[in-house]
Each structure stands twice: as structure tokens, then as C-alpha cells.
């Protein structure tokens, strides 16, 4: 039973980690993690709704 880890996952926007459980040459389970958190929801709290697009276009 082996575990494969691919981190960083390239050619995507953002940061991602992939872990896969391999049994007998087959992947039986897998986990994907986003490894960056900026807390945009917390930043947007109590801001003017008209300004929100300027923040969220930077996701």
C-alpha cells in the first residue's frame, strides 16, 4: 500500500496538493487540498456591497 503525493500541482491557478492511496496498481482513495487561504470572506465583512467585485475579481 503506497501513497503518492503531488505538491505543488502545477499548471493551475493557486496552490494545490494531491494525495492518492494506491493498492495493487489502482488508486483507491484520494485527497485534494487547497494550500492557500487568504480569508477574503473575512475581509469583505461589513464592506460596501458595491466594492465587492473589486476584491472578488482577484480570487
Amino acid at each position: 500500500m503506497a501513497k503518492i503525493v503531488v505538491d505543488p500541482m502545477t499548471r493551475i491557478e493557486g496552490h494545490m496538493r494531491i494525495e492518492a492511496q494506491v493498492e495493487g496498481g489502482k488508486i483507491v482513495d484520494a485527497w485534494v487540498s487547497g494550500t492557500m487561504f487568504r480569508g477574503l470572506e473575512l475581509i469583505l465583512k461589513d464592506r460596501d456591497p458595491r466594492d465587492v467585485w473589486t476584491f472578488l475579481s482577484r480570487i
Binding site: 503525493v5 503531488v6 505538491d7 505543488p8 500541482m9 502545477t10 499548471r11 491557478e13 496552490h15
Partner: peptide, 13 residues
């Protein structure tokens, strides 16, 4: 450059 490079994971690092 993570977004455009060919290798991933250990090879990228």
C-alpha cells in the same frame, strides 16, 4: 513558474 511549467510535485521542486 508553477502556472506554466511542465513538471509537478517533486520534479517541480
Amino acid at each position: 513558474h508553477e502556472t506554466i511549467m511542465a513538471p509537478s510535485g517533486h520534479a517541480a521542486e
